[in-house]
Simulated assay, not measured.
Amino acid sequence: MATSSSLLRQTCQIPKSLRQLSTSAAATSHHRQPPQNHKFLDPNSYLGSWQPPKDPKEAEAKLAMLRRQYAKQVKEVRKEYIREVEMMRLEQQRKDEAKREAIRVAREERNKLKAAEAKVRAEERKVAEEEFRQMLMKERAAKLENWRMKEKAQEDKNKEKRELLRRQSSLWIDQQNLEAKLLEAIVQTTEL
Rank of each mutant, 00 (worst) to 15 (best):
E109W: 05
R78H: 09
E129A: 14
K54M: 00
Q134L: 15
I14E: 05
E124T: 08
H30T: 10
K16Q: 03
M135I: 10
R148L: 09
E160S: 11
M1T: 13
P53K: 00
S170H: 14
E58N: 00
R125V: 06
L41F: 00
A180I: 05
K181V: 15
E117V: 02
A153S: 14
L41V: 01
A27H: 14
R166S: 12
Q93S: 14
T189W: 06
R133V: 10
K75T: 15
K99N: 13
A64P: 00
E124Q: 15
Q175A: 08
V105A: 12
N177F: 03
A116G: 06
S5A: 15
A26I: 09
A128I: 09
G48H: 11
H30F: 01
E145K: 11
A26L: 10
R148F: 08
I186H: 14
K39A: 02
R67S: 04
Q73W: 02
Q176K: 12
S24F: 02
L8R: 03
L90F: 03
V127H: 10
L66V: 09
M65C: 07
K62C: 02
M137I: 13
L192Y: 11
P52L: 07
T28P: 00
E131I: 10
Q36W: 00
Y81T: 09
A98V: 04
Y46M: 06
L165K: 08
K112T: 11
A116F: 07
M87C: 06
E84F: 00
E58S: 04
K57P: 00
E58A: 07
K79G: 03
A71Y: 07
R166G: 05
W147R: 07
L18F: 07
M65D: 14
P35N: 02
E97H: 08
E80A: 06
S5I: 05
A185G: 09
P53I: 00
T189L: 12
M65L: 09
Q10G: 01
A116L: 12
S5N: 08
K112A: 13
A61C: 02
R94I: 01
Y81V: 05
I14C: 03
V127S: 08
P34V: 01
S169W: 10
L182V: 05
R67Y: 02
R107H: 11
S6H: 03
R167A: 11
K72E: 12
E145H: 07
Y70R: 15
Q13Y: 00
Q92L: 12
L7H: 09
V105I: 15
K181M: 12
W172V: 10
N37A: 01
K95C: 06
A106K: 14
E60Q: 09
S24H: 04
A59L: 02
R104Y: 08
